[in-house]
């Protein structure tokens, strides 16, 4: 059953808490991009995807599937997977620790439910999505393949190979979201390797392109619904999702600096104060 906006807001706050606690707990990980994508992944897993989290099947047969291409935002992915029923939320406490299934970057190696492919080395997820989308078409399925990439990740050439392949083969069952936060490790994307106009780039490759405010729950819900309607129209769908890196924790916003560093004890306390728990901590 669909969650209300109020319920979604509580999940978002809870996932923000999980992210900063997980990263603080091992003093490593990537909180900035994770926080920026919290609303999107929460809505996707709580309200949009047609899947079966409690009996996870890696093949995703007759289900919607999601691939996280920018695997470094594993904290948000793990939190959302846990809160959508893929595995117990207590397991979040093992993030990045020895013998964990919650590796620094997601992997199938340890058999964590919800993960179908390893990611971390950037630029590969859209290709994997193309393969699964192709298989679903071959099998006559009408389910969708979602994939999330970072905007910095678009600097990888493989992404554009896949962009070309998807439109040439009319993979209109792919909904690819780009997290346009404008930041990457070394600074702002416009300074490191600017893209000029992403919308016209994807449109030139014959994709349907729509914008989304990734930090506005209602807009995320509406845009994902719209993307679903656009599927099947002969073109793959790209959602350019504007987000703020570090969203929801004020001192992590407005800079690339929190891409991959952990908060200290006082910073953790402040981040948690800004996001009171309504669902329950791990």
């Amino acid at each position: 059953m669909s969650k209300t906006t109020y319920e979604l807001e509580n999940y978002v706050k809870q996932t923000r808490r999980d992210i900063v606690r997980m990263v603080h707990g091992v003093q490593s990980g990537h909180p900035g991009g994770s926080l920026g994508c919290t609303e999107f992944l929460t809505v996707l897993y709580q309200n949009v995807m047609r899947n079966n989290p409690t009996s996870f099947d890696i093949s995703g047969k007759d289900e919607d599937v999601f691939y996280l291409s920018n695997g470094h935002i594993s904290p948000v992915f793990y939190s959302v997977l846990a809160h959508s029923g893929h595995f117990p939320i207590e397991e979040l406490a093992t993030f990045r620790k020895i013998n964990t299934r919650l590796q620094g970057h997601p992997t199938t190696h340890e058999g964590l439910p919800g993960v179908r492919i390893a990611s971390g080395s950037l630029g590969q997820g859209l290709s994997v999505a193309c393969g699964t989308a192709q298989a679903k078409k071959l099998d006559g399925e009408d389910k969708l393949v979602y994939v999330l990439m970072g905007d910095g990740e678009l600097q990888e050439g493989q992404v554009w190979e896949a962009v070309m392949y998807a439109s040439h083969n009319k993979l209109d069952n792919i909904i690819a979201t780009v997290d346009v936060n404008g930041r990457q490790i070394d600074g702002d994307t416009k300074d490191i390797m600017g893209f000029a106009d992403l919308k016209s780039k994807f449109e030139a490759f014959n994709w349907n392109v729509i914008y989304m405010d990734g930090n506005n729950l209602n807009d995320v819900q509406d845009t994902l619904s719209k993307a679903g309607v656009l599927s099947g129209s002969g073109k793959p769908i790209c959602i350019l999702m504007n987000t703020e890196m570090g969203n929801g924790v004020d001192f992590m916003m407005g800079s690339h600096k929190w891409h991959g560093i952990a908060p200290n004890h006082d910073q953790l306390a402040e981040a948690l104060r800004q996001n009171p728990s309504a669902v329950g901590d791990y």
């Binding site: 193309c130 699964t132 493989q158």
Partner: peptide
């Protein structure tokens, strides 16, 4: 069952992985 990938080997490998996930 044949997929022409063009001169794009990296995408071919990733696409193959995605097909394998789906049981191909």
């Amino acid at each position: 069952r044949f997929f022409q990938m063009g001169i794009a080997e990296a995408n071919m490998i990733g696409t193959a992985a995605g097909l394998a996930i789906s049981g191909k």
